[in-house]
Design a protein around this nucleic acid. Structure first.
Length: 705
DNA sequence: CCGCATCAGAGGTAT
DNA sequence: ACCTCTGATGCGGCG
């Protein structure tokens, strides 16, 4: 937590800054806090307060943040009203009609969004009751185009997934996937659809689309594996989730376009082909070449739009800015190999070359964290320089295209290449101060890097990989853990740990959090399952090759050499558990900038407001990482964070083992800073200690605690 | 650990 | 109806 208290402040006494030694004894040296307005912070009482955007807010507490306002209007409201009264932050019933879910009937989907938007606008002017009554609910099922043959009876009505959380802890046997998807879509903040349905994409629309896809995909996968023997469930959750999104029109940039795609940034990464489809980057669910037909482009000839290079055709080239791409065709399921023809994608590439058109390039790479899977890196705009025909090994003709990256674009694929070189020791990582600041305390080294200025490192602290809890925590209901000798199995309805999580394992097979549940119940000391149990994700230590680096204006920060998938556990907040009084004292006097305070309110995911309830955390948790801590102490604040924390309770007879775990909330490309929302203490008083926020996001609210 | 084969799939285009 | 640089899984070979 390297708050920068004004970059103008003078760095602390440099003589105290370490230069050698095991970094186990690194201790932070902070510029003396220049925030005089510290006042006592009466935050007692309220246990963890997580304000759902939909409220309700704690008595006497006003929302500090206009949750339901679009980024644009939000900026305005912040400019004009320092203490914004959220005009639209009215409570919304749990069941929100998804009135924007008109299935695009016309194949030319460009205008669908606008018509939908219009209806939404009109709706926005209705009174609250009218706006949320159910008369206009569109039955999602009635509109389901494909996959209807698979639909079963909806015995449980709209709450098929309710079985997962009804407290019985028993997963429903008869789970209707469409009903589950329906429920998830229903739980989405309607504001999100206003953003998504805009014909032109935006960063928000892309982010929301991907978040919804993730939740759908993981939920469907979770159901699938827990009901495997019953032949219900989607074998390919990625496809099923994508199909649902397409059918319901939950997608961005549905109109194909040449060149940049609004809201999709160079360097963005994807883990499924469908993700790129849903945000309008590359539509085909499998094919490598996307193109506009002559009809769609109103031209005489087809034109290429984007290509995915997945290495399937040996497209290797040493240069990160040049790509040799093979055409499509020449393989037939039954008839085997043949010559490729100048048609479809091949023809489109040819025409694009002659016109000198932009072509988007996505590079598919092997995902080192998940060797079976791939990661797709959007590498920006290329132009086709050359094309020719080659004889492939099979003896048949293959089209080849040489593409060169347009200059002046942000780095993307080359970052991956650099990291690979550092890994292979083919090139040194410059600016390394320490190769491993954990001194071996973690399984993976965490290097300390500064290629910005002359700071030699953070001040002394002791690196500890996990939480130190000297005082007992108030007991929750007694539990004695599970007896899953070989590890907890998805379908096991008798496992008490699975029951505590509502009938499903909280983590997917890939180790991602399946849900946005407020509290995660992991197996713990009183369980008989092995450390490799899938329900012990947060106990396995660091997996990613993290580095603590010097930011340009926020002191030290944290980032990763490895790409991090949304939903992945990153690390816990290690440190020393302290009590409320001590936390208040240290915090109020600005003696400790490394306090984690579970009572701080932070912006919840605005996509699923109704999904978020106040976590039933046994008691408020205060942790200081000033003298002892792990990598989490270096994570900076952002108002548009890419990381989120969740409380984790580990089964431990009468002594609940409470931890704070950090998860990625979106895909994070390598070397992008990891940040979470520190939140603020409530009630927020004028002049209360606040820190100026430097996150630079358009959603920046200006301060945090 | 790695490649290979298998196979059910999806959207979009072509017919 | 046809096409496709998927993605999960299982097998056999490799060192």
């Amino acid at each position: 937590m390297d708050h920068n208290l004004g970059q103008e402040s003078v760095p602390a006494d440099k003589s105290r800054v370490l230069n050698v030694k095991p970094l186990r004894t690194l201790v932070p040296v902070f510029p003396s806090p220049s925030n005089p307005s510290s006042s006592s912070n009466p935050q007692g009482g309220a246990p963890f307060v997580a304000v759902s955007p939909a409220g309700p807010f704690p008595a006497g507490v006003a929302p500090f943040y206009p949750f339901f306002v679009s980024p644009e209007s939000q900026r305005l409201s912040e400019q004009h009203a320092p203490n914004p009264t959220p005009q639209r932050a009215t409570p919304i019933s749990a069941a929100v009609p998804i009135n924007s879910f008109k299935t695009p009937t016309a194949a030319t989907n460009g205008d669908v969004g606008s018509s939908r938007r219009k209806s939404r606008t009109r709706r926005g002017q209705l009174t609250e009751e009218e706006g949320y009554d159910n008369t206009e609910v569109i039955d999602v099922d009635a509109e389901t185009g494909g996959g209807s043959s698979k639909r079963k009876k909806r015995a449980k009505g709209r709450r098929a997934s309710g079985a997962a959380t009804d407290g019985s802890g028993v997963a429903a046997v008869d789970v209707d996937l469409d009903a589950v998807a329906h429920d998830i879509l229903q739980s989405i903040n309607p504001m999100v659809f206003d953003v998504i349905n805009h014909p032109d994409g935006s960063r928000d629309s892309v982010t929301y689309t991907l978040m919804i896809y993730e939740v759908l995909r993981r939920k469907l996968g979770q159901i699938e594996e827990s009901t495997k023997d019953l032949h219900t469930g989607a074998k390919r959750p990625d496809l099923k989730a994508g199909n649902v999104m397409m059918t319901k029109g939950v997608r961005s940039n549905s109109k194909k376009r040449i060149g940049i795609v609004p809201g999709v940034e160079i360097g963005d990464i994807f883990f499924f082909r469908f993700e790129m489809c849903l945000v309008g980057l590359h539509s085909p669910s499998m094919a490598g070449i996307d193109y506009l037909t002559s009809k769609a482009s109103q031209e005489e000839e087809p034109l290429a739009v984007s290509i995915v290079s997945s290495g399937g055709y040996e497209d290797d080239t040493g240069d990160g800015d040049v790509l040799i791409y093979s055409g499509q065709g020449g393989v037939n399921r039954e008839k085997g190999a043949s010559d490729q023809k100048l048609e479809r994608g091949n023809l489109a590439l040819e025409k694009s070359m002659h016109r000198g058109n932009d072509v988007r390039v996505i590079r598919g790479l092997k995902d080192v964290m998940h060797p079976s899977g791939k990661v797709y890196v959007y590498d920006g705009i290329y132009k086709i320089q050359d094309s020719w025909v080659e004889k492939a090994k099979s003896g048949f003709n293959v089209f080849k295209y040489k593409l060169a990256r347009v200059r002046g674009q942000p780095e993307a694929y080359t970052i991956w290449k650099s990291i690979q070189q550092w890994t292979d020791k083919a090139a040194p990582r410059t600016g390394v101060i320490l190769p491993d600041l954990t001194s071996g305390a973690e399984k993976v080294p965490v290097c300390l890097v500064n290629d910005v200025d002359n700071e030699k490192g953070p001040a002394y602290f002791t690196y500890i990989p996990t939480l130190k809890n000297l005082r007992g925590v108030a007991p929750v209901e007694s539990s004695f853990g599970c007896s899953c000798i070989g590890g907890c199995q998805p379908g096991n309805r008798n496992c008490p740990c699975i029951q505590k999580n509502g009938g499903y394992l909280p983590y997917t097979a890939a180790g991602l959090v399946a849900d946005l549940k407020s509290v995660i119940h992991e197996c713990g000391p009183s369980c008989q399952c092995p450390p490799t149990c899938r329900n012990r994700i947060s106990q396995a230590g660091l997996k990613f090759r993290l580095e603590v680096f010097r930011t340009s204006n926020k002191g030290w920060g944290l980032r990763s050499w490895d790409a991090i998938r949304a939903g992945t556990f990153i690390c816990e907040y290690a440190g020393e558990v302290i009590d409320n009084a001590r936390a208040e004292m240290l915090g109020a006097e600005n003696e400790d900038e490394y306090i984690f305070d579970s009572t701080r309110i932070y912006q919840q995911l605005e996509v699923f407001p109704a999904n978020i309830e106040a976590p039933k955390i046994p008691s408020p948790l205060y942790i200081t990482a000033k003298n002892e801590g792990n990598v989490a102490r270096f994570m900076n604040h952002s108002c548009s964070p890419n990381v989120l924390w969740r409380p984790i309770v580990r089964e431990n007879k009468n002594e609940p083992d409470l931890h704070i775990a950090f998860f990625a909330i979106r895909h994070i490309p390598p070397m992008m800073e990891l940040t979470y929302d520190y939140g603020i203490n409530l009630p927020l008083q004028a002049g209360q200690r606040k820190k100026n926020c430097l996150c630079g996001s358009v959603k920046c609210r200006g301060y945090f605690c």
